[in-house]
Design a protein around this nucleic acid. Structure first.
Length: 458
RNA sequence: UCCACGGUAGCUCAAUGGCAGAGCAGCGGACUGUUAAUCCGUUGGUUGUAGGUUCAAGUCCUACCCGUGGAGCCA
């Protein structure tokens, strides 16, 4: 590659030409047409994208066109274009790459209120017969063609909502003084020791794929105070439900000097900010998914807080199979959040069912300062975390009690030998959150290429 | 790992043990405002694999493969 001169590489003109090259788009044309800006509405424009659908009506064709920024109806009048262009528009297969010259107009009969009236139609690449039709398909068929399924209106909306959620989380945390310090994916041993890990080769040694960045986050938090990591997480559990993925993304904030109550508030603020951004910026996508925005508008602080023991009493009233001392099962979570319009915060779990690093509750050594946040509508646990043990001797005792290899946790115990402070954090499941925002029933649509128990491709 | 269900045309599904079917998609045609358009015509099959029972198996039996839903675990 030729080395660009420093002047041209950083000049305004190159930035401008990139910005200019990307316009107009379906989104910019719709904005202009709906706002009635004389400049762009009705003015000639050329857009490039894909043919997403077609209906014909004699000398009139209705195309559904997608250019990445959105979908738009294109009207092709036989008289308005050359006969070659009309035949091309009438016959080229769905998902062909096409270039359309025309003009955008506000049009109440068109979906989205804008349509592009074509003056020319050119095929950039004629597609082979497209396997995904506008009719019904099963999950298995679509997942085998996930690389193509992503082009559908529904998946397009889900990708944009996921992006909005991720951006909103980062925005909120940055605003609160957090640093994104990332944590390794190759790890020498288990973070928690409870769940199954994916084992892999690391040259001549064994390594595992990370199931949490938390322990590393604790080290980073002792440097910068407030940190988070956001990345993929791997659980080699043979989970086979709509609420589980083998590879999923997790946001994990960790805060020095924070106690349990403070990170509950952090989670609450973080969740409400993301909800607000999705409602503001992704209203059209929510409509595409038939997600009622009113349900999301009701997600406001404060979230109700109950302790594990209060939750257990509530389950006893409701008469689920729950046994005191156990963790909540999926039916228990659904029962607890039944009829609620905002998430439920549960704290003070039995020490026996939680991870070794959880701080004991003051005055209740059999309970720990852990917290789970259960989303309403059956979306289950979206947040899990709590306050970490900061006392060196207590933590070492817990490592031993759990039968963990003490030498592997040497560096982790070190954090409690050099200026140890109370600190807390949590993990938030991105796909569960996106699924909840979107109102979809299965996590596999909340990530572009889901990894499920028996599905590794595409 | 356990429980349940499924595998028939490109897709979604029918078919008492007795000729392999429909709708949609595709292809050809009609139609100047469609919203999953409509209408006419038409192509399309090693019934997941292997074996067994039977005059006869998509259908019954056995094993295996693949998938879907759920449980447990967790985000």
């Amino acid at each position: 590659m030729a080395e660009p001169s420093p002047a041209s590489a950083s000049s305004d003109s190159s930035t401008l030409s990139w910005k200019k090259r990307r316009l107009p788009t379906v989104a910019s044309l719709r904005r202009a047409a709906l706002q009635g800006k004389g400049e762009e509405s009705g003015a000639p424009a050329t857009v490039a994208g894909w043919l997403a659908g077609r209906r014909s009506s004699g000398r009139l064709l209705f195309l559904n066109f997608r250019d990445g920024s959105g979908f738009a109806q294109v009207v092709v009048f036989r008289k308005a274009v050359s006969s070659e262009a009309f035949e091309a528009a009438r016959h080229c297969p769905l998902e062909s790459a096409v270039e359309i010259r025309g003009a955008a107009f506000a049009e109440p009969r068109a979906p989205g209120g804008m349509e592009l009236r074509a003056t020319d139609f050119r095929v950039i690449h004629a597609a082979e017969p497209y396997p995904i039709t506008p009719k019904e398909h099963g999950a298995s068929f679509l997942l085998d063609r996930r690389h193509l399924w992503l082009r559908s209106r529904r998946q397009h909306a889900l990708l944009r909502i996921r992006d909005e959620v991720l951006f909103a989380f980062r925005e909120y945390l940055r605003d609160q003084g957090f640093i994104c310090g990332d944590t390794p994916i190759f790890t020498p041993n288990a973070c928690e020791g409870t769940t199954t890990l994916f084992e892999t080769q690391y040259f001549d040694r064994h390594a595992y794929l990370s199931q949490s960045g938390q322990l590393y986050n604790e080290a980073i938090a002792m440097s910068v105070g407030r940190t988070y990591c956001l990345g993929p997480t791997f659980r080699a559990e043979k989970s086979k439900t709509r609420r589980h993925l083998i590879e999923f993304w997790m946001l994990e904030p960790e805060v020095a000097f924070a106690e349990l109550g403070e990170i509950v508030e952090l989670a609450e603020g973080l969740i409400c900010h993301a909800v607000d951004r999705v409602l503001t910026n992704r209203a059209a996508e929510l409509a595409t998914l038939d997600r009622d925005p009113e349900r999301l508008r009701r997600i406001q602080p404060p979230f109700p807080r109950i302790t594990y023991d209060q939750a257990a009493a509530r389950l006893a009233e409701k008469g689920t199979d729950f046994t005191l001392g156990d963790d909540f099962g999926a039916p228990d979570e659904t029962a607890l959040t039944e009829g609620m319009d905002r998430p439920l915060v549960v704290t003070h779990f039995p020490a026996a069912i939680k991870a070794f690093y959880m701080e004991p509750a003051p005055g209740r050594p059999d309970r720990v300062l852990g917290m789970d946040i259960l989303a309403p509508e059956g979306y289950g646990e979206i947040v899990g975390g709590g306050q970490r043990i900061h006392d060196h001797d207590l933590l070492r005792e817990r490592v031993r009690e759990h039968g963990l290899p003490e030498e592997a946790f040497g560096w982790y115990l070190d954090l409690r030998r050099f200026g140890s402070v109370p600190h807390s954090g949590f993990g938030l499941g991105i796909e569960r959150f996106v699924a909840w925002m979107s109102g979809i029933s299965h996590l596999r649509e909340a990530i572009p290429f889901p990894r499920t128990l028996y599905r590794l491709s595409p």
